[in-house]
């Protein structure tokens, strides 16, 4: 997993609430057995018209947002299906950070496993950042995980909070399976105890 420290980039405004993972990547595109290549179908139902051509009204089809690395949206981002293909599609497109008032739980977890930083900020701050983002290519936004601040194009700093363990893993790009396997002795002894108390759980 790629570490996330500080990102300065173009932010795309998506002023919608309840952006579900079926919108982020429709189910018909989930058939790949790889983690890569989902970016071309990110937001497919909005990005492309029925004949397959680009919909010029959708933000990610407009300059400079084709190169967006940050996405700003409204409440309950990532609700619905647990598909990790949603963060994979965002990442494959080039988005490393999503800013919203709140996120659905599973999507929120999935982001951290893929080096994407989900930042919770109050709705009015998100609305303000969307206005900043509309200024275009010169209006770069910085997201600094080390210092836990978002820096607006005018230099104003907005603090945010990330769970300390998740912040540590993300800053260092650590795989948490390796981390968990350090506790394998505890898992062994848990299983021995559980097997004695609840034998029906074991084949």
């Amino acid at each position: 997993m790629q570490a996330f420290t500080t990102l300065t980039g173009i932010a795309a405004p998506l002023p919608k609430a309840n952006v579900d993972t079926d919108q982020i990547i429709p189910a018909r595109f989930l058939k790949s057995i790889s983690r890569l290549g989902f970016g071309k179908n990110l937001f497919a139902n909005f990005r492309y018209r029925e004949d397959g051509s680009e919909n010029p009204d959708f933000v990610l089809n407009q300059e400079p947002y084709r190169k967006a690395e940050i996405l700003i949206a409204f409440e309950n981002f990532g609700c619905g299906s647990s598909r990790e293909h949603a963060p994979w599609a965002l990442l494959d497109f080039g988005i490393r950070c999503v800013i919203a008032p709140d996120f659905a739980d599973i999507f929120h977890n999935n982001c951290f496993k893929n080096g994407i930083l989900p930042v919770r900020l109050p709705k009015e701050v998100c609305a303000q950042l969307m206005e900043d983002a509309k200024l275009g290519a010169n209006a770069r936004i910085t997201v600094d995980l080390e210092r836990e601040v978002v820096v607006r194009p005018n230099g104003e700093e907005i603090p945010f909070k990330i769970d300390p363990l998740r912040r540590h893993l993300l800053l260092n790009g650590l795989d948490d399976i390796g981390q968990t396997l350090q506790h394998v002795a505890s898992i062994d002894s848990f299983e021995a105890k559980q097997k004695a108390a609840q034998p029906w759980l074991y084949a």
């Binding site: 647990s82 598909r83 990790e84 599973i106 977890n109 999935n110 496993k113 399976i177």
Partner: peptide
């Protein structure tokens, strides 16, 4: 995400992403 269904049995059941699937396969935790 519809793993929540199994909660009807009186279980704690929830949906996870693919990275967590890998984590459970490898560690059962």
């Amino acid at each position: 995400s519809h793993t929540s269904t199994h909660g009807a049995m009186g279980a704690l059941a929830f949906g996870i992403g693919t990275s967590e699937v890998e984590h459970v396969l490898a560690t059962q935790t």
